[in-house]
Amino acid sequence: MSAQKSILYPLVAVLVLILIPVIGVKLGLSYFFAVVVPYAAFVIFFGGILCKIVNWARSPVPFRITTTCGQGKSFDWVKHNKFDNPFTNKQVFVRMVLEVLCFRSLFRNLKMELRDGPKLTYGSAKWLWLGALAFHWSFLIILLRHMRFFAQPVPGFVDMLQSVDGFFELGVPQLFLTDAVIVAALTYLFLRRVVVPQLRYISLPSDYFPLFLLFGLILSGIGMRYFFKVDIIKVKELAMSLVILKPTVPEGIGALFYVHLFMLCVLFAYFPFSKLTHMAGVFLSPTRNLANNSRYKRHVNPWDYPVKVHTYEEYEEEFREKMKEVGLPVEKE
């Protein structure tokens, strides 16, 4: 599929997805979009991810194929790089934490170097790390901030997040930094796919689709917060009714809310069937989550089977005379 089509098709798909709840709510299907779709999406998300993980877990890790990114453990006098080349499970845990929370492998792209005179410069690849980190962390914080709609009383950490996130106290309602950051990061992640020829070449429709979906989700959310207000008391009433499993749909929440909710549901439902499963997959990656101690501790391959080998007897049988000629000891004279 050409690059243009790879972008166009998902874009059209997302635009259609935006129209669906708008029309649906007009047709009086608000219960469907406010209750049925979210529950369904939630179930698909959980069920799907669970199936995916179980599916992965059903395949064993027959060999210990750690990628080592630093000095391994050998002698006491050789400095062991514990977190890039873990030897114990504890060290693996730290490596995974660094990987999952700080994107350490991507960070490796960051190389400070002296180039063309004394000016310190960084490799361009740091942007990918920064963009990815900014996007993922913003997304997480935004998700957690939304907990104010799902709990009563609102837990303290949400309050803390909100005050940190709204630190600059810009505008009313307060501008959340993550809102700005996530749009910037997402734009960057999108643009690099379009602008960098290598990336344009490798990008598939399934790379653009989640990007557009996220744009839809985030922009509708930002729109609701800052521009086209909806009645968030009612939003919370709906959210609370959903989480206590007694769904009621208050009248008169703006259509934009339904777009936002629908985007979220599509994203959740799409999750298990797409590359987005990297969220769960990263924890299972055998090159990262295994200790590099395979000479220290035997790793067992559960499907190991006997193979045909060329035994010494067969070998000696073939070469006995020649072996004797040069004085090599033989088993059978």
């Binding site: 810009l170 505008g171 009313v172 309602p173 501008l175 800052y226 521009f227 086209f228 207000k229």
Partner: peptide
């Protein structure tokens, strides 16, 4: 300068 962000005043 800050209102120019347009987040609050415009709508």
């Amino acid at each position: 300068g800050i209102s120019a962000l347009g987040l609050s005043a415009l709508p």
